[in-house]
């Protein structure tokens, strides 16, 4: 039976895979962005679990910085999605096909 911090890391890997599959297979851009957020939060969870696993504080510090960065990214992403919706009135990734070779 792995210890609790190790279980936290395994769970974060699971979350990370969920997020990765979301980015790869979702068609709606908002869901893709939320999947990216899930990936970032999975990394946060891994950092704090690893902090407990290795008895160091660095991971918790990184976690706080990453939370701020994730908030910035969500803000920028939603702004981009809104202006895309104003321009194209659609937020499906399949409708983005102007840039092809």
């Amino acid at each position: 039976m792995p210890s609790l911090p190790e279980l936290g890391i395994y769970f974060s890997l699971l979350l990370f895979i969920v997020g990765l599959f979301g980015v790869m297979f979702r068609k709606n851009i908002i869901f893709m962005m939320l999947s990216v957020e899930i990936m970032l939060n999975a990394a946060n969870l891994a950092f704090i679990s690893a902090s407990a696993l290795t008895n160091t504080i660095d991971g918790q510090v990184v976690m706080f910085f990453v939370m701020a960065v994730a908030a910035c990214e969500a803000g920028i992403g939603l702004a981009l999605i809104i202006s895309l919706y104003r321009a194209k009135s659609s937020i499906e990734i399949d409708d983005l096909r102007m840039l092809r070779g």
Binding site: I9, F16, M39, F47, S49, A50, S51, T54, V62, V66
Partner: peptide, 9 residues
């Protein structure tokens, strides 16, 4: 970030 978290672990 996830890679760094695992390296850190």
């Amino acid at each position: 970030l996830m890679g760094a978290a695992l390296i850190y672990a």
